[in-house]
Structure formats: C-alpha cells, structure tokens
Simulated scan of single mutants.
Amino acid sequence: MARFSCLPFAFFLILILFTFSIQTANAGKEGSLRLQDCPKACEYRCSKTHHRKPCLFFCNYCCQRCLCVPSRFYGNREECPCYNNIKTKEGKNKCP
C-alpha cells in the first residue's frame, strides 16, 4: 500500500504563498508593472470617475512612462514618485 506524503503538498503550498507575497509586496511600487499590465491597473484606478476617457488616457500615458499606478481610486500618489512628478504646463498633476 502506498503511503501519502504531505511533503510535496506542503512544498507546493509554500511556493504558491511565497509567489503571492512577492506580487503583493510590489503592488503600487515604482516599476512594479509591465506594459501589458497598465490597461488593467488604469481601468481599476479610473473605474469610479465620471471623466472616464481622459482618466484612462492620462493614466495609461503615465503608467507607460513610470510602470506604476497608485493603488485605490484616488490619492496615494506617494506610492509612485514618477507618476506624481509628471506635471502639466500649469504645474498641476497630469496623472489621475
């Protein structure tokens, strides 16, 4: 009769948890995204605004330059200094 070993299952579980913790630790940090991740991150960031098209346009522009989008729907710009430092000619924040 074959004995069931918990060792492979435990190793697999630890590997999954370690991978997940690395991904969540980098969320919102400068350079943590890939170019293909920008549309999804900006979709979330702009999901509660009434000015959806301009928000998505500028968010994607900033994300492609910085590879970072702040968490949540508004604020938290300190998470992405590059994202926060992109300004308009008038000195206002360009990135939503």
Rank of each mutant, 00 (worst) to 15 (best):
C66E: 02
P54C: 08
L35C: 00
C80D: 04
F4A: 13
P54S: 08
C55S: 03
F18L: 13
F11K: 05
T19N: 09
A25T: 01
I14T: 14
P96V: 00
F9A: 15
N76R: 13
D37G: 03
S32H: 06
A27W: 04
S21D: 06
S47A: 15
T19S: 13
C62A: 07
R65M: 04
I16D: 02
C80H: 00
F11G: 13
Q64H: 14
N26C: 07
S32Y: 02
C59Y: 02
T49I: 03
C63Y: 00
R34F: 02
L17S: 13
N84F: 00
K87Y: 06
Y83A: 08
Q23N: 09
L56K: 14
R3Q: 15
N76G: 01
T19L: 10
R45P: 01
T24I: 15
F4G: 07
F12A: 15
N60K: 13
L33A: 04
L17N: 03
G28F: 01
M1G: 14
C55V: 09
S71L: 10
P54F: 04
A2C: 01
Q64R: 15
A10F: 03
L67I: 01
R77G: 10
Y44F: 15
C68G: 03
C82T: 06
C59H: 00
N60Y: 06
F9Y: 10
R65T: 10
M1K: 13
F73H: 15
N76S: 10
R72H: 14
R34Q: 13
S47E: 12
H51F: 05
I16W: 05
Y74M: 10
K29N: 10
C6E: 07
Y74I: 15
S21Y: 07
F4S: 13
R77E: 12
I16L: 15
